[in-house]
Design a protein around this nucleic acid. Sequence first.
DNA 1: CATGAATGAGCTTTCATTCAT
DNA 2: TATGAATGAAAGCTCATTCAT
Lengths: 197, 197, 197, 197
Amino acid sequence: MLFFSKGYENVSMNDIAQEAEMARGTLYQYFKNKNDIYAAIAIHAAEILAEMFKEVALDQTGIEKIRSLSMTYYQFYKKHTGYYQAYYHSGVFDYHSTPQMEKLKKIRKMNYQFVVKALKEGIADGTIRNDIDPIATTLIMLSMSNNVNNIIPVTQMYMDEYGLTQDELFESNLELVLRSIENGEKHPNNSKDRRII
Amino acid sequence: MLFFSKGYENVSMNDIAQEAEMARGTLYQYFKNKNDIYAAIAIHAAEILAEMFKEVALDQTGIEKIRSLSMTYYQFYKKHTGYYQAYYHSGVFDYHSTPQMEKLKKIRKMNYQFVVKALKEGIADGTIRNDIDPIATTLIMLSMSNNVNNIIPVTQMYMDEYGLTQDELFESNLELVLRSIENGEKHPNNSKDRRII
Amino acid sequence: MLFFSKGYENVSMNDIAQEAEMARGTLYQYFKNKNDIYAAIAIHAAEILAEMFKEVALDQTGIEKIRSLSMTYYQFYKKHTGYYQAYYHSGVFDYHSTPQMEKLKKIRKMNYQFVVKALKEGIADGTIRNDIDPIATTLIMLSMSNNVNNIIPVTQMYMDEYGLTQDELFESNLELVLRSIENGEKHPNNSKDRRII
Amino acid sequence: MLFFSKGYENVSMNDIAQEAEMARGTLYQYFKNKNDIYAAIAIHAAEILAEMFKEVALDQTGIEKIRSLSMTYYQFYKKHTGYYQAYYHSGVFDYHSTPQMEKLKKIRKMNYQFVVKALKEGIADGTIRNDIDPIATTLIMLSMSNNVNNIIPVTQMYMDEYGLTQDELFESNLELVLRSIENGEKHPNNSKDRRII
DNA sequence: CATGAATGAGCTTTCATTCAT
DNA sequence: TATGAATGAAAGCTCATTCAT
């Protein structure tokens, strides 16, 4: 699915057929049109990400989970670049209520919820400030990650000039967010471990 | 210029001609090709933004300037949405060295520098932490702003569900960043006023 | 293929599609672009001519072979006018070294060689003057034939006025050339038949 | 007028306007359309050639005049390549009876007549064979000249390979024709000088 | 089921021609 | 008379989609 890194417009049905080792016509036996193919891939991508999010260790504090989820999303991009791109670009679809689209929307929302939930847990266990808006913060976090993963040429040029790598940008990004949301005060219930005890 | 929100690939010369109330052929009297039109608009957009950045008050601390610049960028989007979009999308161009592209690149870099400079001033005057990387932070800040300005449908849907507006998202975004980079320690030189004395 | 009489520039893909009773797009399944179509036809044409040249009887004197080759070229024009035109016009191509073009060039050179060889044989067997340049003479002969086959309107008008037909022009042409290159001296070996004895 | 070497199709009104140092629109004050411009140039070209033909010395035998006319035509090509091309290409016009076209046709016919007349004189003065058709021979002679002047790329390539120059080709061409039409027999009235006496 | 030849709408671009100034 | 901005038809080409086999 790597060809979807090129973006929807720049992938022809020919490319897809070749990649799938099928005839161009055969694709239309399984999919109504090009958009449908994209949606199917996006759904698969969303499921892969959901699976990866599910595997994030549960026995962590909120702030630790946030760090883990961020890193997981970055790994999703690194390991499944094509699917990542399909997932990313699928966000611009107009979700006229086809069953396909409804399904995609549902999984995407679920993936958001992983982060929202971790933020709420962090607020509850005292590792995350209680004055942040979990929804807004989730949106900000994910979009920041997307920008690290989709560096536009002019930015890349800028980074090259200063010897900044993508990994370093991810690190800076992550530290910036964590520093911003973590709760600076000392408090007794800031670790899951202790609570378990 | 609002049609540029659709992105380069999705705007045909026909669309542009219709929007400009010109015949398709007329466009070619003023521009060499489609790319040139885009570049010309992007350059104009970059100049508008540069002008707005220049008007940010100078007698502020570093952190105050960062707040002002962020708000200015948001206002650029609000007041000149079409130009904003052209500026934003122009980042994906491959900058093969045409004079047009070189010019655009130059202005874009200059616009980055406004932010980098403010961050460095903030580090110097003690209002911004001294352990951040000004370059990486600039890139993160601007890309975060871009995400607030280009909310994808699926995110919009999510926001609607929780009654979150774009302005509120911008606010959250801005606070998150400022909180993350501001210097929490007390220090004597944290205000321009005092320094003047 | 008759439409190629109009010349490359004056035949649109639309014309070709109409002639071939295909949709415009269909042509692009078989040919990379317009140039490719032309080249393919020209190659086919060159092969037809080569085939016809090969069938010229071998047991003739040089001068007889020249007469036969000339008449063959004229018959090629008469029987395969469309292909003839494609062959003729293909001479103006810039032969940037695509495989297509290389192939065409090769066959064209081979076709030249039929005439060159006959001239040399004629010089050897004494039927053709030995002070002519075989290369230059070949070029002249073929170009003269081309002019008989491509009578421009103003010339046609002139011919009509004097009651001169294309066939008569060809005859005049041929006699002029033969008279010019034949060896007037008597010599013992001027006939293949005699040599065989 | 050198741009007409590129051929009718490949010269735009823009090119013509630039060459004439006029605005594109101004051309339409003087000419009905592009075809008219071409016709006007072709007429001018025809007049130049007529002028050059007129200057061919009268006190020559027929065969000498033919040689002179041939060389004059070659010089017309060498000195006025652009006009030569316009003249040459104008032969393909459909002469729907516009006044322009009628005029051009008239001059072209006149130019033919120079050669026809010289051939007839040569037959009369015994320097040219009396069994040739003056009309056909004229057509052949001029078209052969045209081929020397319009060497197609594939032929050029062939000439390069054998180190044959355009001037040499012209020479071969000329000798071939003269040899073919000259009267080999001795006769008393083969020189103008003698006749004058 | 699978194919791929065929389609035609739509793309960017060129250019002869018109016309208000 | 001279201009050049504006036009729109037509060019070569791409590509998602259909359909007979």
